[in-house]
Structures are given as structure tokens and as C-alpha cells.
Design a binder for these strands. Structure first.
Lengths: 194, 194
DNA sequence: CTTGTTCTTGAATGACTGCTCATGTATGTT
DNA sequence: AACATACATGAGCAGTCATTCAAGAACAAG
């Protein structure tokens, strides 16, 4: 009997996520979200009772569920090895060099902007780092069994290093999106594994 | 004949820098700066005519001139080698684990928060990255001549990788200041050089 | 002491912030 | 057609933002 919603909450969340991704949490105003979604403040607040912060946390969750798997791609498949690992880094570099990729990674941006003052946001970031590390460790494990990398390598520690490397790649890429620099970083990171 | 200033602009700049460092550009209000410095808005604006943004850019410059050299320490000395490089990373890790170090590096924070929308700020960050890279490359060069690292290593490329690694270290440290993780990252980064 | 110069002060400005709420509207059931 | 229900609307809330400015205060030179 009630009047049906005229917008899809998931669509709205998607648009909000992109704004937060592009401009950051603080720099994105409710008015920005109203413009981006076409949904007026009142409706926004009734659909997302926690207000701006809730919208942000839900955006982080949505990013983890939809964007991250797409970026990780086959790296999360059980049989992933060195090729998939390299593929992930190459795609990352390609991304950072493209105009749309300049916004970097929402979770890295959140680590810097919000982790210190928002424990819930920090927890999401930590979860993401753990996920990255675990699939990289699995890929390194497979790679070692197949003889694709040095047998003397410690997969767990190397995975942590690779996680840091790709975070660093995004910081460097944000300030100086230079293909030669980004390629040199990945090339040297992988040369160290061989 | 004029009435003398009752505050030292450099001191004020120092206090402003620490606020920006700790909370970021957008999250730091003029009132925050007034409280931190004890200087009222009018005086602040007459001493720094460009307003908040000028105060921020001047803070970045001051950070580069005073804080960065202190952090780089002997790594910038002409004879620096592997030991100084390692010393820099160890100090960085120690910093990230200390309560005051949680704020990370002002220039990394700026890369993420402002680089995309403020070309002048981005230029300062790029200058910092170049400086890091050049002294790391010099240290790697020395280390290679002394046989402290693999002769097959490319100092220029490895320096770029190390720059990315320490940026990544700061992102990871901000979200998850875990000693074991940070040490694993540096240990593996240096193991790759030997 | 007077004057000239520059500084300090803090109230005021208008734009913007996140958010609320009274009003009106569209729907499915009766 | 009449009702109950949930929704959409947007003007409006109190608060904060960066910034300005008129007024007073402190000093040095005459």
C-alpha cells in the first residue's frame, strides 16, 4: 500500500561511492551527492539514516564488494601464480596512467584521510590489506611450487612487501603519473622475485 | 616607528604545519590554527596574505626544509651507503609505531589529499619524491661500488622501487601500525638488494 | 606629548556545512 | 472514491567555514 521508492538505493550508493572516491570524504558535500544522484536531501537521509558518514561506510563496503574483486581479477582464483600477480600490477599501472584512474584507490585514500580518526573506516582498510596480502601470498606460494620464483623466498613476507609496493605505487602515481617511473617500480619489484 | 609584531611568523608557521600534518588541510580550520598559535584571525591574515592555502603551501615548504632533512639524516651525506639506507627505513618504522608518528608524513598525506586538485602542492610532493629518489640512488651507487649489494642491480630503478616501498610503508602503517608487518616489509625489501 | 605607522582585536560577513521537517504526492487496498 | 501508508520535496535550521574590516593599541620619531 505504500508509495514505492522512485530510486534504487544501490544505484544511489554507487554514485555516492564514486564521488567519495573521486574527491574524498570531507571534500564531498551532501549537495554534491544530491547533484550526483538526483535524490533530494530528505530522501537521502530517509534511505540512509546514518547520514553522510553512513553513506561513506556503505560506500567503502560496496567498493570492497564490487570494485576490488574486479581489480584483483584472476589473482583471487585458487590457481593464480606469478602471471596473475604480474597482471595485477600491470593493470594497476595502466589504471594510474589513465584519466579515470587518477583518483587512485578509495581504500588507500581512506587510509590516509580517515584511518586516524575513524576506527570503522580503518577497519575496512585493514580488511582490504589483509585480503590483498592473503591472495598475494597464495599466488607466491603457487609460483614457488612451480619454480616461477626463487625457492629461497619467504612467500608470507614477500606478500607483505608486495602489498606495500602497490600502496606506494598509488601514492607515487597520484603525485607523478609518469609511465617510466611506474614501470620501473614494478619491473624492479618483480626482478627481485626471480 | 611601526608597532612591532607580537609573534614570530616562523613559530606560527611551525604550529600551523603541525596542525596540517596531524589533521590534513581540509580538516584544519582557521579557528584550529587560531587556537594552536594564539594569533587572532586578523593578524594571521595580515601576516600570511594568501590565507589558509598560502599558510598550507608555506607549511609544506617548511616541512621540506626542516623536517625532511632531519628524517633523511645521514642518507643525504655524500658517502651514504647501505647502512644509511637501512637506517632510514628502520627509523621510519620506529616512527610509524610511535604515538607521535601516527600522523605519517605530511607530504604523503598531501599527495593523497591535495595532489589531484592543487598543482602547487603536487609540485612540492613531486620535488620531495625526486629528492628521495636521488639520495637513495646515490646510496645504492655507493653500496654497489663497495660490494654491499648485488652488482647486477640497477641503482636508478631500485631507487624508484625503494621510494615506492617507503610510501607504501606509510600507507600500511597508517591503517595498521603493526611492528611485525612493517619489519617484514623492510626486511624483505633489503633482502632483495643483497 | 603628538603624530605616523603598523599591529592586534574580535565582531561581522556571507557562503556553505550536515541535517530536519512540514507539506504535498503517489500508491495499493478497501 | 476514500483511505492509509510511505515517499519526495525543498525551504529552512543552527552551526561552521574562510575571510574582512573598523576600531583601538603599542611603539618610534619629531
Amino acid at each position: 500500500m505504500p508509495r514505492p521508492r522512485e530510486f534504487e538505493p544501490e544505484t544511489v550508493l554507487d554514485q555516492a561511492m564514486h564521488k567519495f572516491w573521486e574527491r574524498g570524504y570531507r571534500a564531498t558535500s551532501i549537495e554534491d551527492l544530491v547533484k550526483a544522484t538526483g535524490v533530494k536531501p530528505g530522501s537521502l537521509y530517509s534511505a540512509f539514516p546514518g547520514g553522510k558518514r553512513d553513506l561513506f561506510l556503505k560506500s567503502l563496503a560496496r567498493y570492497s564488494k564490487l570494485v576490488v574483486p574486479q581489480k584483483l581479477g584472476e589473482l583471487e582464483a585458487p590457481g593464480a601464480g606469478l602471471a596473475e600477480l604480474r597482471g595485477y600490477f600491470d593493470a594497476l599501472v595502466r589504471d594510474l596512467l589513465s584519466p579515470e584512474g587518477r583518483q587512485g584507490c578509495l581504500l588507500v585514500n581512506t587510509a590516509i584521510e580517515n584511518a586516524a580518526e575513524d576506527d570503522e573506516a580503518a577497519a575496512v582498510v585493514r580488511g582490504h590489506l589483509a585480503r590483498l596480502e592473503s591472495c598475494m601470498a597464495a599466488a607466491l606460494d603457487n609460483a614457488r611450487l612451480r619454480g616461477e620464483i626463487r625457492a629461497s623466498l619467504d612467500p608470507a613476507g614477500s606478500a607483505k612487501l608486495l602489498v606495500a609496493t602497490c600502496q606506494g605505487l598509488m601514492v607515487v602515481g597520484k603525485a607523478d603519473p609518469d609511465e617510466a617511473v611506474l614501470r620501473a617500480i614494478t619491473d624492479n619489484a618483480f626482478a627481485a622475485l626471480a
